[in-house]
């Protein structure tokens, strides 16, 4: 499995995202630039320029027409994927840490930072795909205020039925996207160990959380029940569920600021593969020389990409052996 190294960023990666076809890969980094790449060969398609601060988050609409980005310059920007022009800018009072399109693409949520007397919020924006892409709603249709612990990440469940958010204190909340009411809040990770990532399984019935408490958990979208727990030996920054095969991929590593406790040897900057159902670690992929900040899996399950603190994106297309790998029990099940 030879990786393709995408070296277009000058600073650490914050998020990467495949489009729904998987032919494009979008990456954002602290260097204010948004890049689009061909996932097959790693050629750069172009950049989206305009942000004035570190770009924290990116998402692409399910039809690959619009790209949303959130940045430390307190804006969410909407870009025309094809032309690269910025079609809309929403101003917020604080930095935007996460954007996510609803499964049907008609709504976009934005998680804003808690800072300067402002509470952290989750804002929901309506998105339209008319002739004129600039014609977007000016104000959010809904703003959920997180009074207790700020939300760090959020996403949409199946049928856009719930908004699910991970918090700084290690808890996960379920909100009603119509009323904004909090339906549930469960402390699933160790108290005060931040949830660093939430990613949904392709069917959006379950999602995986990554946390600084060195574990990742698979939860039910419906009732936030913990289905699976994956234990690692390093703080986690990201986790992703693979389609097609039953795996989850975890990424992390000790941050450079905690350097006193960082292992002298390179070794924890690896993407770790766990079996989704059995919770066993099946393999690791090395290569980054800094913590892994973000991982995304190709929607067809044929490749995955990881973005690191080292400023590189590595795209891995899976080998045959990856697809052939099966537990004996699974094989038996498959034969039935």
């Amino acid at each position: 499995m030879r990786p393709i190294l995408l070296s277009g960023h000058e600073r650490s990666l914050t998020q990467i995202k495949f489009n729904s076809d998987g032919d494009l890969l979008f990456s954002v980094s602290k260097d204010k630039i948004v890049c689009a790449w061909w996932s097959a060969n790693g050629e750069r398609l172009g950049t989206y320029n305009g942000h004035q601060g570190a770009v924290w988050t990116v998402d692409v609409s399910p039809n690959t027409i619009l790209l949303a980005t959130g940045s430390a310059d307190n804006t969410v920007r909407l870009w025309n994927v094809k032309t690269g022009e910025c079609v809309k800018v929403w101003e917020f009072s604080t930095a935007v840490k996460r954007v996510s399109f609803s499964p049907d693409g008609n709504r976009l949520l934005a998680v804003t930072e808690k800072r300067m007397g402002f509470n952290g919020t989750i804002a929901v924006l309506d998105i339209s795909y008319g002739e004129n892409l600039s014609a977007q709603a000016a104000e959010p249709t809904l703003t959920i205020v997180c009074e207790e612990s700020k939300a760090t990440v959020a996403g949409w469940s199946f049928l856009s039925k719930y908004i699910i958010a991970g918090h700084e204190d290690g808890s996960v909340s379920q909100y009603d996207p119509k009323s904004g009411d909090q339906l549930e809040n469960v402390q699933i990770h160790e108290f005060d160990s931040q949830i660093t990532d939430i990613q949904f399984a392709p069917d959006r019935l379950s999602f995986i959380t990554a946390s600084k408490d060195k574990s990742a958990k698979l939860l039910s979208s419906r009732n936030l029940a913990i289905l699976k727990t994956y234990i690692s030996d390093t703080p986690l920054n990201t986790a992703s569920v693979t389609p097609k095969k039953e795996f989850v991929i975890l990424g992390g590593g000790q941050a450079a600021m905690d350097v006193t406790t960082t292992s002298a040897r390179q070794g924890k900057f690896e993407a770790r593969f766990y079996h989704k159902v059995f919770e066993d670690e099946c393999g690791r992929v090395r290569g980054h020389f800094g913590p892994l900040n973000t991982i995304d899996v190709h929607p067809a399950g044929t490749a995955y990409a990881s973005g690191g603190e080292d400023g590189y994106v590595r795209v891995h297309h899976f080998d045959k052996s990856y697809f052939d790998f099966m537990y004996e029990v699974e094989r038996e099940q498959a034969r039935k």
Binding site: D104, N106, G130
Partner: peptide, 11 residues
């Protein structure tokens, strides 16, 4: 419903 049908005409 979960697929981006709403934006179907633009695509």
């Amino acid at each position: 419903a979960d697929t981006p049908a709403a934006a179907g005409d633009a695509r």
